[in-house]
Design a protein around this nucleic acid. Structure first.
Length: 272
DNA sequence: ACTACGTCCTGCGAGC
DNA sequence: TGCTCGCAGGACGTAG
C-alpha cells in the first residue's frame, strides 16, 4: 500500500533520525525476505534515498540497505531496551527486523502481512524490480515523450503497465486509479496517443504531489515513522468509490478486476 | 521477450 | 454471539 507519496513521507521523517548513525547488532525474522537485515550490521548510514517505492539507506562502505514496505510495512526509531526480550516472548509478532542504534535506540521494521522485503546491495547493483523499473514518477527529467514511448512498447492494459513500474516507478493501485480518472483514460486501454500520455503523466504528477503534500493516504495500515496517519484519503476521487457517483458526471463508478487488481473507473468519463 | 496468472500473508468486515 | 469466507495488494515465480 505504501506508494511513492507514502514512502517519500517516511523517507523525509526517517532521514534526520538515522543519518550519520551506525546500524549495530541486528535481528531478523527467520525468512529469506528479512534475513538480509543482518548483512547491514556495522554499516553507517550516510544517505537516505528513495527510488519509486524502494527506500535506500546508503551505507559508508558503498553498500545500500534496500527496504520495500510491501503493503503493511512500517519503520520506527524507538527505545531498544527490552526489545529482544519482548520478541522472544512473542510480544512483537509483526516485528520483522531491527537494528541497534547508539543511545539505547533501535531502528525497527514491522510488517504484518510480510509482503515487504529487505536486501543489501553493493554499489547500486540492484536485482528484481528495482533494477528494471523506470525513472521515479516525480523525477523532473522524465519527459512525456519518453513516457509515451515506454507505454507504446507494450500491449498490456494501461493500468497494468503503470503497476509494473516500468514506464515510471512509484505508482500503485490507489494513484493509478486516481490518475487514470483525472486523465479520463479507460484503465483497460491498450494503446494511448502521445497527447493522452502527456495528460496521464501530468495527472500522475498531480495526484502524487498532492498526496505527498498531505502526508500520504492511510486506508488501513500505512503510518509515518512517527506513527501518524496520512490525510490524503479524504481527497480520493476514484479509488475505492465504486458504486458511488463520479464527481465529474455523476455516473455510478464501476468496479472491475484487471490483471487481478481491483479497479474503479467511470464508464462515461474514461475512454479508451 | 512478452503476457497472464497463481502465490505469499493476516486482519477485518460482511453475512449467516 | 460466533463462525466462515472474501477481500485487500506489490513483487515475483512459473507457464505458455
Amino acid at each position: 500500500m505504501p506508494e511513492l507519496p507514502e514512502v517519500e513521507t517516511i523517507r523525509r521523517e526517517l532521514e534526520p533520525l538515522v543519518l550519520g548513525r551506525t546500524l549495530g547488532e541486528a535481528w531478523a525474522f527467520p525468512h529469506g525476505k528479512f534475513l538480509p537485515a543482518l548483512d547491514a550490521s556495522g554499516g553507517k548510514v550516510v544517505e537516505v534515498g528513495r527510488r519509486g517505492k524502494y527506500l535506500l539507506l546508503g551505507l559508508h562502505d558503498d553498500r545500500e540497505l534496500v527496504v520495500h514496505l510491501g503493503m503493511t510495512g512500517s519503520l520506527a526509531v524507538q527505545r531498544a531496551s527490552g526489545l529482544a526480550t519482548l520478541v522472544a516472548g512473542g510480544g512483537e509478532p509483526y516485528l520483522r527486523a531491527w537494528w541497534a542504534l547508539d543511545g539505547d535506540e533501535a531502528l525497527t521494521f514491522r510488517d504484518t502481512r510480510r509482503f515487504g522485503r529487505l536486501a543489501v546491495a553493493l554499489a547500486g547493483a540492484y536485482s528484481g524490480t528495482l533494477a528494471v523499473q523506470g525513472p521515479d514518477a516525480l523525477d523532473p527529467t522524465l519527459t512525456a515523450e519518453a513516457f509515451w514511448r515506454s507505454l507504446k512498447s507494450s500491449r498490456r492494459a494501461i493500468k497494468t503497465q503503470l503497476l509494473s513500474q516500468r514506464p515510471l516507478a512509484g505508482v500503485g493501485n490507489i494513484y493509478a486509479d486516481e490518475a487514470l480518472w483525472r486523465a479520463r483514460i479507460d484503465p483497460r486501454a491498450r494503446t494511448v496517443s502521445r497527447a493522452r500520455a502527456a495528460d496521464l503523466l501530468a495527472a500522475l504528477q498531480e495526484v502524487l504531489s498532492a498526496s505527498l503534500d498531505h502526508g500520504g493516504t492511510t486506508l488501513r495500515d500505512y503510518r509515518t515513522v512517527a506513527g501518524e496517519s496520512g490525510r490524503n484519503q479524504e481527497r480520493l476521487a476514484c479509488y475505492g468509490r465504486y458504486g458511488e457517483p463520479c464527481f465529474r458526471c455523476s455516473t455510478i463508478l464501476r468496479r472491475t478486476v484487471l490483471d487481478g487488481r481491483t479497479t474503479t473507473w467511470c464508464p462515461t468519463c474514461q475512454r479508451r
